[in-house]
């Protein structure tokens, strides 16, 4: 497990990471989300003992990142952001070197290398020079290296960057499989990835945690309810007034007034808490005799939430800067 308390990193005058605390329970997959420059990579580098924290601390599997850094690194698999590798080495040779560095004996090394080569779809390039591999393959070599010693904790910095869609799917599946046995902290700015693989999410912006919880909790916390989209052929104004009068409807917004699309109007309806207004909306539309093309329930995306909280944070920081 990973326990982080009041972790802080200051580079000169800039506060890159500002007293963040969180916990990743054993066997869980947690997504670490934030815009570029939010302090994600800095936090991960502190957790992997590459950079020391300015203040605060963290424990990985019970070991302190500052005082027991060797034990921490023994129990940790890390895929760093740009996946720096020795380009003059061959894939298998590189993994063998990494295994030796981790003092794995010959038999274990051989077994684990076979396992990770297969797991990361590298078997057909095992004899190739890393320098000749494409970005996607290098990414997988990095992942194989992180998994090599079967660590209890895995920290992956943007693991699916540079992969093609099939590989992204496979990698996410791999990550999901790893959860349970391993504790995973996964940084990303790809939102569907978080929804697809993570048990819970931590969103940071400007070096601070602005929200955390499971994707569902996050959506609920900001009252980002689902909305109903209706497409029908009728004058926009009439649609708006008629739908506003439907029981349970909170707000109606006309997304397209039908000028571009053969007079089909698209309206987005936000229902009041807990109401499913689809039936009533459909009835209203048919009662008015408007041809109905589509009616659909759209769940709020994490993306909207993300944009909202990080924007709030940026505004808050500007105000702080103005006050100071």
């Amino acid at each position: 497990m990973i326990e982080v308390s009041q972790l802080t990193k200051r580079y000169g005058q800039t506060l890159a990471v500002d007293h963040i605390s969180f916990e990743v329970p054993k066997g869980r997959i947690v997504g670490f989300l934030g815009p570029n420059g939010a302090g994600k990579s800095t936090t991960l580098r502190m957790l992997t003992c590459y950079l020391p924290p300015t203040s605060g601390g963290a424990r990985i599997n019970g070991y302190d990142i500052f005082h027991q850094s060797t034990q921490v690194r023994e129990n940790l698999g890390y895929l760093s952001e740009n996946v720096p590798l020795y380009t003059e080495m061959r894939v298998q040779e590189y993994l063998d070197f990494r295994g030796r560095l981790r003092r794995m004996d010959r038999a274990t090394r051989r077994k684990r290398i076979e396992y990770v080569l297969e797991r990361c779809w590298l078997t057909n390039v095992r004899k190739k020079l890393i320098g000749h591999l494409s970005k996607g393959y290098r990414q997988r070599v990095g992942l194989a290296d992180a998994l090599l010693h079967n660590p209890a904790v895995l920290i992956l910095d943007e693991p699916t960057v540079g992969l093609d869609p099939t590989q992204i799917r496979e990698t996410r599946k791999l990550i999901k499989d790893l959860g349970g046995d391993h504790t995973l902290l996964l940084s990303t700015h790809i939102l569907p990835e978080v929804e697809a693989v993570c048990d819970s999410t931590i969103i940071i912006a400007g070096g601070r945690i602005v929200a955390q919880g499971s994707p569902d909790e996050l959506r609920a916390s900001r009252r980002m309810q689902a909305r109903v989209l209706v497409e029908c052929r009728a004058p926009a104004l009439e649609v708006e007034t008629a739908l506003s009068r439907v029981n349970g409807v909170g707000r109606v917004e006309i997304l397209s007034n039908g000028e571009a699309d053969g007079q089909y109007v698209t309206a987005a309806i936000r229902a009041k808490d807990g109401c499913d207004v689809r039936e009533e909306v459909a009835r209203t539309v048919t009662q008015n005799g408007w041809p109905l093309r589509e009616i659909r329930l759209e769940h709020a995306t994490l993306e909207e939430f993300f944009v909202q909280v990080t924007a709030n944070q940026a505004v808050a920081q500007q105000q702080e800067g103005g006050a100071a």
Partner: peptide
């Protein structure tokens, strides 16, 4: 310059 130092130092080596 290539950043491999990060991979190297995050392995358990001094």
């Amino acid at each position: 310059s290539t950043g491999t130092i990060e991979t190297l130092m995050t392995a358990p080596v001094g």
